[in-house]
Design a binder for these strands. Structure first.
Length: 160
DNA sequence: AAGACGGTCAACCGCGTTTTT
DNA sequence: AAAAAACGCGGTTGACCGTCT
């Protein structure tokens, strides 16, 4: 039944309606939120918009060098577990991180492959952060330093 | 000056997992 | 306990915008 409805970019009015409805009903039952809000959107679409854009406390704009560094580090550890990585970066979403990683590292991966065709290792792990970031050495230092603090970043202090 | 190109980001899709009925 | 509904994740696409030729 779910009349799929509108797709594509959200208008300000849609955002406002969505925020209003989420305040009313909470961040769950998205199909219901979608219906009640009068938005001609799927619940799924509403959830995505909320989580990635409207959610209070979200940071917008480019990742800081510190965040970039963290992403590299965590990706080396966990691979493409974007949501997991995102949980270590308050105010950032999995989508943002995924986008960042793709645009900044796929390129690097290709360059690396070109420059060292001998790289037998099929898996490219930690890559250099663009320009203003950290050197490879620093990154690897920190990765190995944090090796024992493994899975946890949940409570605390990767952050100031 | 304008078209081509590349980077960025928001949003969609498919599918596996979790929650609800 | 099982079926249905909702959620969440990761991959992918496409529009937009700035830069280069």
């Amino acid at each position: 039944m779910a009349a799929v409805g509108r797709k594509g970019p959200w208008t300000e009015e849609e955002d406002a309606r969505l925020v209003f409805s989420v305040r009313l009903f909470g961040e769950r039952r998205w199909d219901n939120v979608a219906k009640v809000s009068g938005l001609n959107r799927s619940g799924k679409s509403c959830r995505l918009r909320w989580v990635n854009y409207l959610h209070p406390g979200l940071k917008h704009g480019r990742l800081t060098p510190h965040e970039q560094h963290l992403v590299v580090q965590l990706h080396a550890k966990w691979g493409n577990r974007w949501s997991k990585i995102a949980r270590c970066l308050p105010g950032r979403t999995d989508n943002e991180i995924k986008n960042y990683w793709r645009t900044h590292t796929r390129k690097k991966a290709e360059e690396l492959r070109m420059s060292s065709p001998s790289s037998s290792n099929s898996e490219v792990v930690g890559l250099v952060v663009d320009g203003d970031g950290y050197s490879m050495d620093q990154i690897w230092d920190e990765i190995s330093a944090s090796e024992n603090s493994d899975e946890k970043c949940s409570e605390s202090v990767l952050w100031e």
